[in-house]
């Protein structure tokens, strides 16, 4: 995650003054990161692209609520995350309706299978299983795995993005990894 440099503060002030070129610069700086985070949350390319672009649009619309001295990305990340998880909840409800009222866990499992393996580079069986197991984690734990492993953020950067302490990050990461391990053990990937 990029730090809050003076340049970004100036750009944000320009965006508040309705300068679209300044916003374009911000979008170009964060678009790949936004897309990859959304991909980790929703598991398919089309939705990730659509949701990340929508998040930028909403950030632009609400830019006046952001204090220019604060970092753009942690604030933007909240918008992106809320959009992605709202989308997932809708999908999960739809799935539950289709499958005639299955329980949350089954819906989650079914959704995990929708995590498209074609998105994985140099894929093998283990990577695909980890990817699909990620789709079966609940929101809170999926988020921390995505930020730590797929975005390679430090604990400090994750804490900034989640507006929480480093201790909370560590504890959440422990539980997320344990759950991921349990799902994979059910799928017989060699992590025992």
């Amino acid at each position: 995650m990029t730090g809050c440099c003076k340049n970004e503060t100036v750009l944000l002030q320009q965006v508040k003054g309705n300068c679209k070129a300044a916003f374009e610069e911000i979008v170009r700086k964060y678009m790949k990161q936004a897309y990859h985070i959304a991909l980790g949350f929703v598991g398919n390319k089309e939705d990730a692209m659509d949701l990340s672009q929508e998040a930028f649009y909403r950030a632009y619309k609400n830019i006046n609520t952001l204090d220019c001295d604060r970092k753009f990305f942690p604030w933007f990340y909240q918008i992106l995350k809320n959009l992605c998880f709202t989308h997932l909840r809708k999908q999960s409800n739809r799935l539950r309706c289709q499958l005639d009222g299955v329980v949350e866990e089954t819906a989650q499992h079914e959704y995990g299978l929708k995590f498209n393996p074609e998105l994985i580079a140099e894929k093998n069986e283990n990577k695909v299983r980890v990817w699909q197991a990620l789709g079966q984690l609940d929101e809170k734990h999926r988020e921390i795995i995505v930020l730590r492993h797929f975005q390679n953020l430090s604990y400090k950067q994750i804490a900034e993005a989640l507006y929480c302490s480093k201790d909370t990050v560590t504890t959440r990461l422990y539980h997320a990894r344990r759950m991921l391990k349990q799902i994979l053990n059910r799928k017989e990937v060699d992590v025992k």
């Binding site: 678009m31 790949k32 897309y35 991909l39 390319k45 692209m49 580079a121 492993h149």
Partner: peptide, 23 residues
Amino acid sequence: QLKEITDEVHFVELEDRIWDRYW
């Protein structure tokens, strides 16, 4: 072991033209 497998998961890179159209 879990970290090793998870760290190996990388996404397929999108073509440049997709990023050019993103804005």
